[in-house]
Design a protein around this nucleic acid. Structure first.
Lengths: 123, 123
DNA sequence: TCAATAGTTCAATAAACGTTGAACATAGGG
DNA sequence: CCCTATGTTCAACGTTTATTGAACTATTGA
């Protein structure tokens, strides 16, 4: 069925929505994991986050992240590949994403974030 | 009645709570206004925000901002003077507050934030 | 072609949220 | 001493939120 799901344009990205999206622990963990993945310039798909919650709940959080402009979803067969909208976010809110991610990294224990090595999949 | 209201310690300040607090447009406007006031190193009291909402609703938002560690309230007579917890926030989440405030400033129109000159009270 | 895989949709639920107004508390100035 | 100004508390409300499980769709590989 569904072609490419809806994404807001860069200009449509709103600060309060982005902050609200990042304020949920599960979504923050997703964003953090996507940020780690940026370093090896590959994408992650839904299944890579199964540790965080159930599938239907993740679908809900992915939709929020997409609709507020934090991430981009690309449909490929039965998979949906996701990555951060790094360029758009840095253009709209310079330094914000990095500050959030490095703050999250400092509190990784408290936030129960996965360690880096666990994120990058072995291939 | 109430002596100094409760504030979390620096270490108790949590990233998701801070982001959630900043995601509300009224609270973001309050924080923005407090940030402008930092420049003249003075404080603001509740009444200075009456343009944003009704008094009891502001009390509610002030409590949220206090409890999540974003601001400090000092009781003086019948007034409550407030300021950002700049040092604590910069220590816990380096760059975050500045990124949020400058992002808000860029979107001042959209977010309906008061202009700088209106914030600093004439004396 | 069939079965397994990957993910979505939908309805239901409980909790948290933002907003309002009325009643209350407290301090300071005439 | 009272009156006013400043701000809080409380209950009520309608809305939005996160979470769950069951049913569903669609693609792929054997």
């Amino acid at each position: 069925m569904s072609r490419t799901p809806h994404h807001p344009t860069r200009e449509q990205i709103e600060l309060p929505m982005v902050l609200d999206c990042l304020s949920d622990p599960i979504r923050l963990a997703i964003v953090y994991q996507l940020a780690q993945q940026e370093r090896v310039s590959s994408e992650l798909c839904c299944g890579d986050f199964n540790g965080l919650s159930g599938k239907s709940n993740l679908t809900y959080h992915f939709a929020k992240l997409r609709e507020c402009g934090l991430m981009l979803t690309r449909v490929a067969g039965t998979n949906r590949f996701m990555r951060l909208r790094r360029e758009d976010l840095d253009a709209r809110f310079p330094g914000l994403l990095d500050a959030v991610i490095s703050s999250a990294a400092r509190d990784a224990d408290r936030l129960q974030l996965v360690a880096e090595c666990e994120v990058v999949k072995a291939e």
